[in-house]
Design a protein around this nucleic acid. Structure first.
Length: 572
RNA sequence: CGGGCUGUAGCGCAGCUUGGUUAGCGCGCGACGUUUGGGACGUCGAGGUCGUCGGUUCGAAUCCGACCAGCCCGACCA
């Protein structure tokens, strides 16, 4: 491709509202343009990268036996009501009406439609199946942000495994796990697989693939020593045991004006240090108020609460709700003697005694609380948010918390969708079983952005060869000089004949502009062809990663680059 | 949805407090000339419903109101 004919609108300055590095570089490099919040055009360079990422995904999905399809994105709302996700997905689901007034939705993932297709499977002999598509998904994000990282319209590769039994599901899941590792590795991403919450997708088990980045929105806990790693929505740590001494009598005591853990701890340091207190939170889980109990010095991890309670939606109770429920204001709450309200308690309170907690009367607390003796507990659960540096549950070494971008997520779904849509198959004995599904997603454009987050320097993007929009750029320093241009075109022909993807910068521009642009758009290899080099018979080859330069005899350049790029391709 | 901020040329910004006639600057863009191994220089030029609607006023980019859009921080996801 001749740069002079290409649409590569590079910008010297990034738009003021672009913050994430990938956002700034993709806009400046002329890869994408924003149309509206969370809605992006892929310009020619961006589209080339996107297609390369898609192709890597496609190859790896096909390699595990995936069959590609394409499903509609416009769905009758009925289908989503049938799976109960019409309500569950809430405002994230784009909802619209057709001219007849019928309710429609734009798909945000497609478990429902694949389950409907699966009703055409009748026998265990038809299983397993791996089905996938790469298609546009719509999510009415409350807050699109960070360029391509969080948008309202994007391409997702979504695949689904269909099996007769749990071992089959495990096998399909494991295949995807490995395929995903290969996909991200080929894209040049160091993606860490972590155990995660399944959230609104439902199901039993899920693994996320996280790329370390400050632009990420998830916190991941990894052990500094062993291979323990988990999303903070799932992560646990080992806590030292606390010796509470002999259990004493439950006793109310006056605590005028003390409304916070800290204030109580300071006023009664002998009995109420934070780890000796019970923190009582009121949460409303799908309209049902519950009490959530944690150690005073611990914080709630909300997703853990939702998962433990098996609900999709929850919020902190409002002050008036809390007063009505318990008769006191936040700061004086407790679960001692509370009946008729579900009480969910964090594991860290197990076997604890001589604790302090609110008495459900303003300005009064209890001391001498033995958790199991004095509180009517409905459920024990892991509810607390882990903190950086706490001991790993496996080996005791400190864990590290870091931010990551979720580039892929795989779920063991189970049978809820097949049951909802009647996808049953018969086993050998002739008995009917709901098909067991797994669901597996990769956000294509987010993957592109993640590659940039992980591969850039001060000058711009540093694409891995596998996803680079072009593999080589020929920078012609004097495109208006006939001899120089002619030598450059000869090289261009040789490289193209060698099967490389080449961009030739034939613009009549100053050298500095061309160097800067080629670095900004991140082409892995650059050959500089100028009058000096042409007369000396030597071209300069620059490797984008590190910007190391070598002088290469003109006649050897094409062979050298073909060898380097073919080798890079075969390594992935 | 709660909190904060911003809308003036393709990009980055000034002008608004204290209303006044042709709305400015840098980059970018077009023409010509000189230049050409790291974002050149000169001359000339094109490009703006000042987010939208309404109000106040003799007069609004500027004051007031509503709305819209975008960004950032929090609760959600590939």
């Amino acid at each position: 491709m001749r740069w002079s004919k290409a649409f590569i609108p590079t910008l010297r300055e990034a738009p003021a509202d672009a913050e994430a590095i990938s956002h700034r570089l993709l806009v400046r490099g002329g890869f994408v343009r924003q149309l509206a919040a969370g809605s992006y055009t892929m310009l020619p360079l961006g589209q080339r990268v996107r297609l390369k990422v898609s192709e890597i995904i496609r190859q790896e999905m096909n390699a595990i036996g995936g069959q590609e399809m394409m499903l509609p994105t416009l769905h009758p709302a009925e289908i989503w009501r049938k799976s109960d996700r019409y309500e569950l997905m809430g405002d994230n689901l784009f909802k619209l009406h057709d001219r007849k007034g019928a309710d429609l939705v734009l798909g945000m993932t497609e478990e429902e439609i694949f389950a409907i297709l699966a009703t055409e499977l009748f026998s265990y002999r038809d299983l397993p199946q791996i089905w996938y598509q790469m298609h546009t998904k719509f999510r009415d994000e409350p807050r699109p942000k960070s360029g391509l990282l969080r948008v309202r319209e994007f391409t997702m590769k979504d695949s689904y495994t269909l099996d007769i039994d749990a071992p089959g599901l495990d096998s399909g899941f494991d295949k995807h796990h490995l395929a995903y590792k290969r996909i991200f590795e080929r894209m040049g991403l160091d993606a860490v697989d972590v155990t995660a919450s399944s959230g609104a997708m439902g199901g039993t088990e899920s693994v996320e693939f996280m790329v370390r980045s400050n632009a990420g929105e998830d916190w991941i806990a990894t052990c500094s020593n062993c291979d323990y790693r988990a999303n903070v929505e799932k992560a646990t740590t080992a806590l030292p045991e606390i010796d509470d001494g002999e259990p004493e009598e439950l006793e109310r005591f006056s605590t005028p004006g003390l409304r916070t853990i800290r204030a109580l701890a300071e006023a009664h340091s002998d009995i109420a240090s934070p780890e000796k207190q019970i923190k009582t939170l009121v949460f409303v889980l799908e309209d049902e108020p519950v009490l959530v109990l944690l150690r005073g010095d611990h914080d709630l991890q909300e997703q853990k609460l939702l998962d433990a309670a098996g609900v999709g939606d929850g919020r902190p109770g409002r002050p008036e709700e809390i007063r009505e429920l318990l008769g006191a204001d936040p700061g004086s709450l407790g679960a001692v003697g509370v009946e008729g309200v579900k009480v969910i308690v964090d594991h860290s309170l197990k076997d604890r005694s001589n604790m302090t907690t609110g008495a459900n009367q303003d300005d009064w607390h209890y001391k001498g609380v033995s958790v199991e003796r004095d509180i009517s507990i409905d459920m024990w659960a892991d509810l607390r948010a882990v903190r950086d540096g706490e001991p790993c549950v496996n080996c005791g070494e400190p864990i590290e918390l870091w931010k990551g971008i979720e580039v892929g997520h795989i779920f063991k779904l189970g049978t809820s969708y097949s049951e909802a849509f009647g996808a049953f198959v018969q086993d050998e004995a002739g008995d009917n079983h709901p098909i067991i599904m797994g669901s597996y997603g990769i956000g294509v454009e987010r993957g592109v952005a993640a590659v940039v987050e992980a591969n850039h320097d001060e000058s711009g993007i540093v694409w891995p060869v596998s996803v680079a929009p072009y593999e080589v750029v020929i920078t012609v320093l004097r495109a208006d000089d006939e001899a120089t241009m002619s030598a450059a075109m000869d090289l261009y022909s040789d490289l193209e004949a060698g099967g490389l993807e080449v961009l030739i910068d034939d613009r009549v521009e100053r050298p500095g502009v061309k160097f800067a642009d080629s670095e900004l758009i991140g082409i892995p290899y650059r050959v500089t062809v100028g009058p000096r080099g042409v007369s000396d018979g030597v071209f300069e080859v620059t490797v984008r990663r590190g910007l190391g330069k070598t002088e290469v005899p003109a006649g050897e350049v094409s062979a050298l680059l073909i060898e380097k790029i073919e080798s890079a391709r075969s390594h992935i």
